[in-house]
Amino acid sequence: MTATPSIPQQVSSGWDKFQRRYAPYIFISPFFLLFFAFSLFPILFNAYLSVHNWQPGSGLGDMKFVGLRNFSDNLTDPTFWQSLRNTAILAVESGVPQHLIALPLAFAIHMGLKRVQSLVTAVYFLPYITSVVAISVVFFTLFSWQYGALNAGLNALHNLPLIGGLFPAEKINWLGEVQYVQPAIAMVVVWRYVGWNVLLYLAGLQAIPSDIYEAASIDGATRAQQFRFITLPLLRPTIFLAVTLTLIGGFQLFEEPFVLTNGSGGTGQQGLTTIMYMFRTYNSYSDAGVAAAMSWLLFAVIGILSLINNRIFGRSGLAGKD
């Protein structure tokens, strides 16, 4: 009699033990399975690929170990350096204005537009979630040399009586002249990502307690002084995050230049970013190893720049000491 009830007890206590020990692992396993399959494995495979010579069309069996040759190939390739230079210029041309616009804009929205805040933010955020194909159509109709709205507008201004002389008589080939390619691309990037940064800064601004502002205004501080001495210092963690994201995003720039230059890199290859060149090396040149090595070199560049950024804006950095 006594043994009969003890059996289910044992079973349940064994199940209990099992549950207690392994259930947490089972519950978090979906993330790790996905992480291993779609993040860790590709990274490791990419590292493996970077020291091999491989044409994707010929099957996995055809890899040849070449040591660090893929890396030296990239480092001696003038086009790689040019792409890196283009990327850096585009990152600055598009990154700096993004923050110079987004930060004051977020402050203005936060302070002045309490009631329609969400609506205004949504409007600024819209470009960020718009499909690149749609963007390419819009900006083609703006930038097109013969058929673009921008040139039509400039032409109309040129024909005005008094100030007409200030505007060019000839149509400007925005995506076809060396000096205009990068600014045109940067403009699209700024347009697309300002809303994203506004959102980040708004979140940061909302985290700053309003009694600090109240105290400041009682002390007679102006809006500008409040911005300079309260908002900016307290917003530093957000600025650090936003700048880091812009930095990484800027150095991985691909879609906008690819679409705007029709994949060609534009006149004089001014719009060829490193990611675009990597894609070309893999896709058109079928040189997977060199492309993999290029991605690691770009990773190194981004890593170094992130460290520098950390030194400037991060908590442990220079700015954190004041």
């Binding site: 159509v137 097109s144 058929y147 076809g176 029709n262 060609s264």
Partner: peptide
């Protein structure tokens, strides 16, 4: 017309 490659937007237009 400096339209670039065939089937580019400028070429099509």
């Amino acid at each position: 017309a400096r339209a670039g490659a065939a089937f580019s937007p400028e070429w099509t237009t």
